[in-house]
């Protein structure tokens, strides 16, 4: 854990980020979650080929999120206009949050310290309960450390099973 950073660990509550979305509208993470499970994806930026590849994977399963009451959310240090262009190019329909001023990056202790040019987020995926309790953390500095789409499905299933009434009996 980075000195002075908020502890991000399984079972703890994730901070209720207050950041503009890709259109520049102010948002809170709790508002974006809207009472649903969340896959919170911190990524370096559109310039990174690993991020391009990973977010294309996420776009591939967004149709499942659309109909299954769960929400991917992507966060980077890019300005909203850059995120809007990247999002449109990907064909993404989920929210991007912009920490262009790096207000949350140091508090979350997620600085990619090896990149002294962009000072971006370390690629990290958190799966969250609707109340923002951390369910799982995936460190993605190395591409294979990221949550696979199957792991996201597994986590969304586990969280939904824990929070949705009638999950067991189907009522």
């Amino acid at each position: 854990m980075v000195a002075g950073a908020i502890e991000l660990s399984v079972g703890r509550s994730f901070p209720d980020l207050d950041l503009p979305d890709h259109t520049g509208r102010p948002r809170r993470l709790s508002e974006v979650a809207g009472g649903d499970p969340v896959a919170l994806v911190f990524f370096r930026g559109p310039w990174c080929p690993k991020e391009q590849r990973y977010l294309r994977e996420l776009v591939r399963i967004q149709e499942e999120f659309e109909v299954a009451y769960a929400r991917p959310v992507a966060v980077s240090i890019d300005p909203p206009a850059v995120q809007t262009a990247f999002r449109a190019g990907l064909g993404a329909r989920f929210v991007f949050l912009s920490d262009a001023e790096r207000r949350w990056l140091p508090r979350l202790g997620l600085l990619e310290s090896s990149d002294t040019v962009h000072l971006p987020y370390r690629p990290t995926v958190f799966t969250l309960h609707p109340d923002l309790t951390v369910h799982a953390i995936y460190r993605g500095d190395w591409y294979w450390g990221r949550a696979t789409m199957e792991e996201l499905r597994r986590d969304m299933r586990a969280i939904s099973g824990a929070v949705r009434e009638g999950w067991e009996d189907g009522s």
């Binding site: 979305d21 948002r27 809207g34 009472g35 649903d36 659309e66 109909v67 769960a70 929400r71």
Partner: peptide
């Protein structure tokens, strides 16, 4: 009203989208 953040396009318990939520 804040624009719906997406990506959910299904309705919550029959509410006219984007209204509604399962949150208690």
């Amino acid at each position: 009203v804040a624009a719906p953040p997406g990506p959910v396009i299904e309705r919550y318990a029959g509410a006219p989208w984007p209204a509604g939520s399962f949150a208690r």
